[in-house]
Simulated scan of single mutants.
Amino acid sequence: MASDKLLFHLSDIHFGLEDNSALDWVEREIAERRPDAVAITGDLTMRARRHEFVAAERWIRRLDVPVTIEPGNHDLPGYHLPSRYLNPLGRFEAFRELVEQRLEWPGLALVPLNSNVPAQPRLNWSKGWISSRALADCLRQIDALPPGTRALVTVHHPLRETGTSGTALTRGGDQALDRLARRKVLGVLSGHVHDAFDIVEQTPSGPVRMIGAGTLSQRIRSTPPSFNELRWNGETLDVRVRNLEGVESADMMIDDVPEDAMPPREPGEPVAPIGKVPRTDPPVY
């Protein structure tokens, strides 16, 4: 019989440009709340440099709860092409066992889907690409779950294929969503856009819930650093956006995935106001 599950959904920490106050807060929350798992949906690092991965591993090892990590586009070497082609995840070596790990409980599973490729026929390699191999592997894992188990798919890029073939956010995203809809997945957890969202995407095979986490870095877009708290009671999945600024969860969520998915603003650039609330400790939301 399925029991209640508490999951923390983190994304886009960007070690190298991380928000240390936000990370300290999240670490305290994990120590106190003891979630059943932490899902990190990509961009652990800023430039995929060794010292950034060392800092990421040090922080993750301290959490002392089950963790699964999806690589993000920032985690692939962009400046050393041989490494990018031949061993794109090589710098995860010290904690490779946590990368794309399926986590499973009675009635619920976290199943990985890789949205990164070493190269693609467009100039902007930061955007996602669901290869046929990656999708087949994800579907195989879902199909192998015990009967009645609901799947939450973890992926870095939102599975949204907007615009033309050259500007699409995630190539192959539409097909992936359609295949996931056929399997009635509970939701798709992603990151990349640095703002949280909880929307329903329609496909020919039915609806799919897409849930995005914000960032825990200094590279904010329109909302302060945050993470998602997910509660599953066997029937419903509740998503709450937690943040240090005291902003209500609903106000933290954007209405849709940005079509351009442009990189977030750098530290020091102005942020659109969302109802400024003084920073509090402990956090309210």
Rank of each mutant, 00 (worst) to 15 (best):
M1F: 10
K5G: 00
H9D: 07
H9T: 06
H14Y: 08
G16Y: 06
G16L: 06
D19T: 02
N20C: 03
E27R: 15
E27S: 15
E27W: 11
R28L: 12
A31L: 11
E32P: 00
E32C: 10
R33C: 10
R33A: 14
A37T: 00
I40M: 05
I40E: 00
D43L: 06
R49T: 03
R50P: 00
H51L: 08
E52L: 08
A55V: 01
A56Q: 05
I60H: 08
I60T: 07
R61H: 12
R62Y: 01
R62D: 07
E70R: 00
D75G: 03
Y79Q: 07
H80F: 15
P82L: 08
S83R: 11
Y85C: 10
A94M: 08
R96A: 14
E97V: 07
L98M: 14
A109P: 03
A109F: 07
P112E: 04
N114C: 14
P118L: 08
A119P: 00
N124Y: 06
W125M: 13
S126H: 08
G128S: 03
W129M: 12
I130L: 13
S131P: 01
S132P: 06
A134E: 11
C138D: 02
R140L: 11
A144D: 13
P146V: 10
G148F: 08
G148T: 05
R150D: 09
L152F: 08
L152N: 04
T154F: 03
T154S: 13
H156L: 07
L159K: 02
T164G: 13
S165D: 12
T167S: 15
T167L: 15
A168F: 03
A168W: 09
L169I: 14
R171A: 13
R171P: 00
Q175Y: 10
R179C: 09
R179A: 15
L180M: 04
A181R: 06
K184V: 00
K184Y: 01
L186Y: 00
G187A: 15
V188Y: 03
V193E: 10
D195G: 01
I199Y: 04
E201W: 02
E201N: 02
V208K: 09
V208A: 10
M210H: 12
M210L: 15
G212K: 05
G214L: 01
L216K: 01
R219F: 12
R219D: 00
S222D: 14
S222E: 14
T223A: 13
P224F: 07
P225I: 03
S226W: 01
F227H: 10
N228G: 05
N228W: 06
R231M: 08
G234F: 06
L237C: 08
L237Q: 05
L237I: 03
D238A: 13
V239S: 07
V239Q: 06
V241S: 02
R242E: 12
R242L: 12
N243A: 04
L244V: 01
E245I: 00
S249V: 07
A250S: 14
D255P: 03
E259M: 12
E259R: 14
D260M: 11
A261S: 11
P263W: 09
P264V: 05
P270H: 03
V271Y: 01
V271W: 05
P273I: 10
R279A: 12
T280R: 15
P282E: 06
V284E: 10
V284G: 02
V284A: 11
Y285H: 15
Y285Q: 08
Y285C: 09
